[in-house]
Amino acid sequence: MRRRLFALLLPLAFVAGCGSGSATEDGKLAVVTAFYPLQFLSERIGGDQVSVSNLTKPGAEPHDIELTPRQVGDVAGAGLVVYLKGFQPAVDEAVAQEGKDHAFDAASVVSLLAATEDDDHEHETAEGGMDPHVWLDPVRFATIADKLGERLGQADPEHAADYKARATALHAELDKLNTEYATGLKTCARRELVTSHEAFHYLADRYDLTEVGITGISPEAEPSPQRLAEVARTAKETGTTTIFFETLVSPAVAETIAREVGAKTAVLDPLEGLTDSNADYFSVMRANLTAITTALGCTA
């Protein structure tokens, strides 16, 4: 039914968005992004040469968003659409229908890295699916930044050198963040990260941690009693002191496990969207690092 409704809305969406074109009235490249981390990359690399809009509203949970007709029109009229295929079905569908000729798929960079490093199996969750949260690994996120800089240059050749320079500068900042994580998590009393949502496989893999997720890829999934018992048993065996929950989902399940094992709860943000207008990717990642080092008893 949803697909039929989507098809019926497409003509209306095109009318709603056709006036925007691939550039804004002031000549900037119109870039449409799927959710916050890709918005962050696009704004930092695009600079003053682009006008960036985000399909996921601030504070909204991005996995299951539905697009309005105007948003589908924005996808059609953008100079570049930046998305992560497989993460948001509604965005995937809009890109396939309206934006595939002017889209940058961050997942294609992840696939290329996985093929090169032969490590794609390492990011399967307990449910057997793939963890899409690649932006939580600063090293991989830096490579996506490089490729996005190149793609922006293709869409707007006049400013290609500017995009490349900003991508290079951002890569250096992400390298610094990676060093901070590697140093901070080198020596810890524990290395098990108990989380409400299996969103941290890439981060855990990069820094030799083990993620124990209460639920799988979908943060709104209900864990089975067997899974709850298994996580509680693991938490007790490893001496876990902190059960992490995330910003955009109820902490109830994490609190249940914490009470059972005598642990506390704390926020670990998967950075799918911002809840604080004064925060950005780097400030949230550094807050995450502080939370992890405290919970795992790490010493720099």
Rank of each mutant, 00 (worst) to 15 (best):
L5F: 11
A7N: 07
A7S: 07
A7T: 09
L12S: 01
A16H: 01
G19I: 06
A23W: 13
T24A: 06
E25L: 11
D26C: 02
D26R: 01
G27F: 08
K28P: 04
L29I: 06
A30C: 05
V32I: 15
T33V: 11
F35Q: 05
P37Q: 04
F40M: 10
G47E: 05
G47P: 09
S53V: 15
S53K: 09
N54G: 05
K57N: 02
E61T: 06
E61V: 07
I65T: 09
L67F: 05
G73Y: 07
V75F: 09
V75E: 02
A76R: 15
G77S: 15
A78W: 03
L80D: 00
L80R: 01
V81F: 00
L84D: 07
G86E: 04
D105G: 02
S108A: 15
V109E: 00
V110T: 13
V110W: 08
S111F: 12
A114I: 06
T116P: 00
D119A: 06
E122D: 14
G129L: 08
P132V: 07
P138S: 06
P138W: 03
F141D: 04
A142M: 08
T143D: 13
A145T: 04
K147R: 14
G149M: 06
E150T: 14
L152G: 11
L152V: 13
G153L: 02
G153P: 02
Q154L: 12
D156M: 05
P157H: 04
P157Q: 02
A160V: 05
D162L: 10
K164H: 13
K164S: 15
K164E: 12
A165S: 04
R166V: 10
A167D: 05
A167F: 11
T168K: 13
T168L: 12
N178S: 14
T179C: 07
E180N: 03
Y181K: 01
A182I: 02
A182L: 03
G184D: 08
V194E: 05
T195M: 07
S196Y: 09
H197L: 09
H201W: 07
H201R: 14
D205H: 15
D208H: 14
T210Q: 10
V212E: 07
G213K: 04
G216L: 06
I217T: 01
S218D: 11
S218A: 10
P219W: 09
E220F: 11
E222R: 08
S224E: 04
S224K: 02
R227D: 05
V231W: 13
A232P: 01
A235R: 03
K236H: 06
E237H: 12
T238V: 07
G239L: 00
G239P: 01
G239E: 00
T242A: 08
T247E: 14
T247Q: 12
P251G: 06
A252V: 11
A254L: 11
T256S: 12
I257C: 09
I257G: 02
V261R: 02
V261G: 10
G262T: 01
G262S: 02
G262M: 03
T265P: 00
D269T: 06
D269L: 03
P270G: 03
L271P: 00
L271D: 00
L274N: 00
T275K: 10
S277E: 14
S277T: 13
S277K: 11
N278K: 13
N278H: 12
D280K: 01
Y281D: 08
Y281N: 06
F282M: 12
S283N: 11
M285A: 13
R286E: 12
A287K: 14
A291Y: 03
I292V: 15
I292W: 07
A295F: 11
C298R: 02
A300F: 10
